[in-house]
Amino acid sequence: MMDSNTQNIQNRTLIAVSNNQEKSSYEFQVKNQYEFSSKGRKLKVEMVEEADGIMLISCEGVRYPFEIVSIKQNTYEVMVNGVSYTFTIETPFSLKRRQILAAQKPADAGEELRAPMPGKIVSVLVKPGQEVQPGTALVVLEAMKMQNTLSATEAGIVGTVAVKEGQTVSKDDLLVETKKPKA
């Protein structure tokens, strides 16, 4: 009955769902932090830090350099061989929950980036139509003599760019609008 039990870190099923367009997902049975199985295949992972501080992951007989770029709760952005991957880690239940919620909710309108404080736009780093990922720098705002890089928090496609370089903006002025990519 309690298929959603996550009481034990060990021996549970976790699903890594990519935020790429294909939304590819990988399901793993977790034995412990280093041993997993996927589709009946056993996978052993090892992570080592080399003397120069570069981290390497070895699995399936290959060794690749990696970096953990950011962790936002259960969303992990990692780089393997310099390629960035973003995965949200789900349990079978949380995945189902996501589908239920998605079915209930109308399509999200996207995101509006507004000036967090008055200042001057130093540079605009994106153009309408450009695809952005969470963390993609959108504009640089100079305020209180400091350069603030403002970034997207959600993946999307840039709609309106409401400001130009050199323009002065007030607090809460619209800077960039992004739209959700069509599923």
Binding site: I9, L14, A16, S18, S24, Y26, F28, V30, N32, Q33, Y34, F36, S38, L43, V45, M47, I57, C59, E60, V62, Y64, F66, I68, I71, N74, Y76, V78, V80, V83, Y85, F87, I89
Partner: peptide, 13 residues
């Protein structure tokens, strides 16, 4: 990609 997914899962764990 599989290794990246494993990396994320392992770190999450």
């Amino acid at each position: 990609e599989l290794i990246a997914a494993l990396l994320a899962v392992s770190n999450y764990n």
